[in-house]
Nucleic acid binder design. Structure first.
Lengths: 183, 183
DNA sequence: CTATACATGTAACTAGTTACATGATTTA
DNA sequence: TAAATCATGTAACTAGTTACATGTATAG
């Protein structure tokens, strides 16, 4: 389960509470592994049981006590073990593809509209990624170490959006053309 | 939930039993929406309760009776309704990306090896897709109707694999280079 | 005075995966 | 005689989503 390991990575970069982790996830990991605060709290609990993280209760005034988590030696070993085992491939399930497959039984214009919406949201996301690239990775592709790793992840995101945009364009053109032919 | 709707599409193309559907899924839908026979039987049961499909029990000799499912008018309406509503975007969760993100805490060579494995499996899949394209869609991109829709779905698969291959190549090169620099 | 940040949780639900069960027929 | 095909299912589990709950402090 990659969520546990994504948390281990995040906690190795900086120890912190579930709340802090959820914030950090929202800002970085969520682009490729989203997780709600519930999921993070629950998973941290399980990880503490397994001994992958240690918990320190920090009493606070005026607000609930906070639990700070840090990666243990066992957690570090587990992260290393996991990262060496074969990474399974998962089929990304996309409703829009199913709709295209069944377009004969649907309102084609409604599907075209969804493709346009998708295209726009991908273009927006791509622009956000490109801005992050400019701001945080000006040295790319000549980076090293952690910065390189982060940039490579960003590259995956950029590629995904670029691909999405191109496919949407193909889709819109082809469905439009076919509609035109029919009339 | 797209599984229900993928089943409606498949059953509109041809009515059949859960078993038959599971076979057909394995041969086509599974490329973009995999489902086990359990999932299909369970979902068909739910769909029958909702009145989206009708069930006819066909007694057989020598083997268990078979239940043939067909899409009802309500099912056709539901398919049309669903295909018009906005398609949600889901983040494809990929373990390999998480591993790259945390490469600093891992054995980099092991991650490179996984990227190579991934690259090969994507190249294989791409070759299979290209063969289907040659065999079943020689008229592309000038197709119309259902053949066009099926080809557009295939295009999504082809694009996905091409993109995967390119990203893996970037990844392998960059991590290798960085390893070289370090030494 | 309203919204946001801080901080953690319980509970119920949905979707998908994996293992196990049954049993005849046909093909290698 | 072993394996694959036909045919349907129960049960348990894992991962992720959504709704609800609590309560202070601070910023606009």
């Amino acid at each position: 389960m990659a969520l546990e390991h994504a948390i281990l990575i995040s906690l190795r970069e900086r120890a912190g509470s579930g709340y802090e982790l959820a914030q950090r996830f929202g800002r970085s990991m969520a682009y490729f592994w989203p997780a709600t605060h519930q999921q993070i709290y629950r998973t941290l609990g399980r990880m503490a049981e397994q001994g992958w993280v240690s918990v320190t209760e920090v009493p606070q005034e005026g607000r609930p006590d906070k639990k700070t988590y840090a990666v243990t030696a066992a957690g570090r070993a587990e992260l290393r073990r996991w990262s060496g085992e074969p990474a399974p491939r998962v089929t990304p399930r996309d409703d829009l593809i199913v709709k295209v497959r069944g377009a004969a039984y649907a309102d084609i214009e409604a599907i075209v509209a969804q493709a346009q919406e998708r295209r726009e949201s991908s273009a927006d996301q791509l622009e956000r990624y490109r801005e992050i690239e400019r701001r945080d990775f000006p040295g790319a592709p000549g980076l090293t170490g952690q910065a390189l790793h982060q940039w490579l992840v960003l590259r995956a995101g950029i590629r995904l959006e670029e691909n999405e945009i191109e496919w949407c364009d193909e889709l819109i053109d082809a469905l439009r053309r076919d509609q035109g032919v029919k009339e």
